[in-house]
Amino acid sequence: MRIKDFPEEELLLPGNAACQGCPSSMALRLALKALGRNTLLAVIASCTSVLQSPFPATAFDLPVLNMAFATGGATGSGLAAAVERLMKKGVYRERPTVLVWAGDGGTYDIGIQSLSGAAERNADFIYVCYNNEAYSNTGTQRSGATPYAAWTTNTVKGKREWRKDVAQIMVAHGIPYVATASLAYPTDLFEKFTRAKGIRGTRYIEILAPCPPGWKFPSGHTVKVARLAVQTGLWLLYEHREGITTYTAGTQRIIHGKARRLPVEEYLKAQGRFRHLFYPERDEERIAEIQRRVDRVFETLEFTHRLKQHIMDIEMLPPR
């Protein structure tokens, strides 16, 4: 799949109310291209509630239900149950895809119970968390997804805690599909949505969504910052199916030794939210802490990869 093979039809229309360089609108545009017109979309309270434009206008060329903040999983469950009924009654000829679109606050924090419940019931819908690592809509407060040391309006000296990892929590639910994605790897993102569409049950996709006003970088740098997150190893791209995790795109290239992992500094320096790590003087300790964490993760990933290669080499030796 190449970018020029993506469908031309736009289901998120231009002229909407998103900020310049908004990662949510970019992610939506790509995801909807992959899922197509036969989709029921539920938007959970977030910047996406706003970017679709105020009543009576709408930027969506899809049926959309806006819902309250803590309802993502339950909304998906209700839509999926109704679709099941309507399929039985023959109201739909082709089963529509149910897509729930929520932010990291709506996923990591207030909505995790609802999401967990739906996943445990394996309700039939795709849940997307577009993770801009803060409550952007209410003016960039910290969330459970905000990374260590990041400035937000209520962590002015940098967040003291490390972020949790909801994608891994979803893996632990044993649902049929979990994937992470990045705006900087659009074909990878597109393919993950296409694969998710072909599976039944709860599917979870989390997209890292660098937010220009929230993370404080120029609005033209959204994709660049998204790419640096992968290149420095701070955002991992993978998908998880049937008990097996497969690393993809930029993350895979690093693990396979085909690309050099960049120092985290390059990512941190590209954003104003980490400025206090470099100005007025370098905060060696916190920068090193972040670097150490990533190094440890990749040591394990690379070791596992080499081990697998080694076993495969042995198995492929001709019998003696």
Binding site: T75, G78, L79, A82, E120
Partner: peptide, 28 residues
């Protein structure tokens, strides 16, 4: 009895699922 029963994990979710089901066009 031919009906979809969703054993939700809270009342907040019960009402959310009901709203979603009605929005999709079924009696809830």
């Amino acid at each position: 009895y031919d009906c979809e029963y969703i054993p939700v994990e809270s009342e907040h979710s019960a009402m959310a699922a009901m709203i979603a089901a009605a929005a999709a066009g079924v009696r809830a």
